[in-house]
Nucleic acid binder design. Structure first.
Lengths: 126, 126
DNA sequence: CTGTATCCGCATTGATACTG
DNA sequence: CAGTATCAATGCGGATACAG
C-alpha cells in the first residue's frame, strides 16, 4: 500500500504501523457516503440539515456516523453554536481539502470515461 | 457531484444520466477492496492467486466479486489461458491506470497526513 | 487453478422514537 | 435543529463444497 513510500525505512515497526493505519483509513474513508460528503462540502460551510439535503439518499444516521468518523480523522471541523435551536456547522479542514482533491480527481475520471464505462458495461452484460 | 463539469450542458438528460452513473461508480469503486486491488495490480499482470496473496485479508469470494465488477466497468482486463490447470491474468486497462492515479493520490495523502490523523484521533477519543 | 453456488452469522442500515 | 438510542431487516462477507 504505502509500502513504496516507506521502502528502506530504518524502522520496520513504522512501516507496519503506517501500513495498518493506511489500511484503516482506506476502510474508513473509501466508502461512497464519505466521498459524497467530502465532495459536496467542498469549500463551503454547511449545517447538518443542509448537508443532508445535498447528499441525496443519505439517512440521518449514516450522515451522523460518517461526520463523526470524518471529524475523528481530522477531515471535518465541527463547530457548535450554543443557540436554540442549535446550529452546527461542518467544514473541511486542510487535510480534508487535500483529500478532496483526490475525490475530485475521481469525479473527473468518472466524467472523462463515462462513455467507455457505459460501453464496457453493455459489452459485459451481454 | 460531476454537476460542475456539466453546468450549462445543452442536454439536461445527459446531466442526470451522468450524475446517476457517477453515483453508481462511486458505489462500486469507492470500497476498500477495489482500491486495494487497483493499487496492488499497479502496472503488473497478476493471476488470481497472486492477487489473492498480495491483497492480504481478502476472501476468495470478495476478490472474485470485485474483479468482476472492475471488469464490468472496464477497469481490468481478464485474459483466460486455455490450459489445464487454467491460468487467468488480470491487468489494469487504460481507464484503470487512470483511476489508479487517484488511488495513488489517496495513498500519498494517507502517508502525508499520517501524523495529523493519529493526533486528531487521540484528541477525539479523549 | 479459477470460479460458481450455497448456507449462515454478523454487521450495517433505515425507521422510529426520544432528548437537549 | 442536531443528535442519540433502539430495534428489525436485509444484505454483506466468510466458510465450505463442488465443478471445469
Amino acid at each position: 500500500m504505502v509500502t513504496k513510500q516507506f521502502k528502506g525505512s530504518p524502522e520496520d515497526a513504522d512501516l507496519t504501523r503506517a501500513d495498518s493505519l493506511a489500511r484503516e483509513i482506506f476502510s474508513d474513508v473509501a466508502n461512497k457516503w464519505a466521498f459524497l460528503i467530502i465532495e459536496f462540502l467542498g469549500e463551503r460551510t454547511l449545517r447538518f440539515t443542509e448537508l443532508r439535503n445535498e447528499v441525496e439518499g443519505i439517512s440521518h444516521k449514516m450522515l451522523t456516523q460518517n461526520l463523526r468518523m470524518l471529524e475523528r480523522n481530522g477531515l471535518v471541523e465541527r463547530t457548535v453554536h450554543p443557540t436554540v435551536p442549535p446550529r452546527v456547522d461542518y467544514t473541511l479542514t486542510e487535510p480534508g481539502q487535500a483529500l478532496r482533491a483526490t475525490v475530485n480527481g475521481m469525479c473527473d475520471w468518472t466524467s472523462r470515461y463515462l462513455v467507455d464505462i457505459e460501453a464496457s458495461r453493455r459489452r459485459f452484460d451481454a
